[in-house]
Amino acid sequence: MSSFENPSREEIKAILEAAGNIAVVGLSDKSDRTSYMVSEALQLRGYRIIPVNPTVKADILGEKTYASLKDIPEPVDIVNVFRRSEFTPEVAQEATEIGAKVLWLQLGVFSDEANRIAADQGLTVIMDRCIKVEDAVTAPNRSNK
């Protein structure tokens, strides 16, 4: 059993309030997918979404899509991950290499190894939580930046 504990709601609120760029790993270009719906909702709330998907060449949600985190030419605050748990340690490693502040694994995604990799490099780790739900709960009055 893991001893992992997510940050408090207050800490999550502070993380979201400070967030500029959110790289979404595994963001689908299909509008019926959860990753797309969550990212679109965040974008409408004023967050900057950066799509990361090696199989999509076109823009997603009006933003240039990158094959990997390392290809993003600007700072990333949150790496939001829509990949199966077994793929997250590699994403965690890339997140540390680009200097991200937060590794956020979506609802149903949990990895002790990804947590260890990211936390050892000073990243805040959030697992098995939906960023859209947390944003709605912690920042209900957020207006577009």
Rank of each mutant, 00 (worst) to 15 (best):
S2P: 14
S3N: 15
F4Y: 15
F4R: 10
E5A: 10
N6P: 08
N6H: 05
N6D: 06
P7K: 00
S8K: 01
R9E: 09
R9N: 09
R9S: 11
R9G: 03
R9M: 06
E10M: 05
E11C: 01
E11Y: 00
I12Q: 11
I12N: 10
A14R: 13
A14M: 08
I15A: 07
I15M: 09
L16K: 04
L16V: 11
A18E: 13
A18Q: 10
A18M: 05
A19P: 11
A19L: 10
G20I: 00
G20C: 00
G20V: 00
I22N: 10
A23S: 03
V24H: 01
V24Y: 01
V25A: 08
V25R: 06
S28Y: 00
D29E: 06
K30R: 13
K30Y: 06
S31P: 10
S31T: 13
D32V: 12
R33I: 12
Y36T: 13
E40D: 15
L42S: 09
Q43N: 03
R45D: 13
R45Q: 12
I49S: 08
I50A: 08
P51I: 04
P51M: 04
P54L: 07
P54S: 05
P54G: 06
T55D: 07
T55Q: 06
V56H: 01
V56L: 02
V56F: 00
L61I: 02
L61P: 02
G62S: 03
E63K: 02
K64G: 06
T65E: 12
T65I: 07
A67M: 07
D71C: 09
I72L: 11
P73T: 11
E74I: 14
I78S: 08
I78F: 04
N80R: 05
N80L: 13
V81G: 09
R84P: 00
S85C: 03
S85P: 06
S85H: 01
T88G: 03
V91F: 08
Q93D: 14
A95Y: 06
T96D: 11
E97R: 10
I98K: 13
A100L: 06
L103P: 06
L103Q: 04
L103Y: 03
L105E: 12
Q106H: 11
L107H: 01
G108P: 04
S111W: 04
D112A: 12
E113I: 03
A114Q: 12
A114E: 14
R116W: 01
I117W: 03
A118Y: 05
D120V: 00
D120Y: 00
Q121S: 15
Q121R: 14
L123W: 03
L123E: 08
T124K: 04
I126T: 05
D128P: 10
D128S: 10
D128R: 08
R129T: 02
C130R: 00
C130T: 02
I131C: 14
I131P: 11
K132R: 15
K132H: 14
K132F: 14
E134M: 15
D135M: 14
A139R: 09
P140G: 05
R142M: 09
K145L: 08
K145E: 10
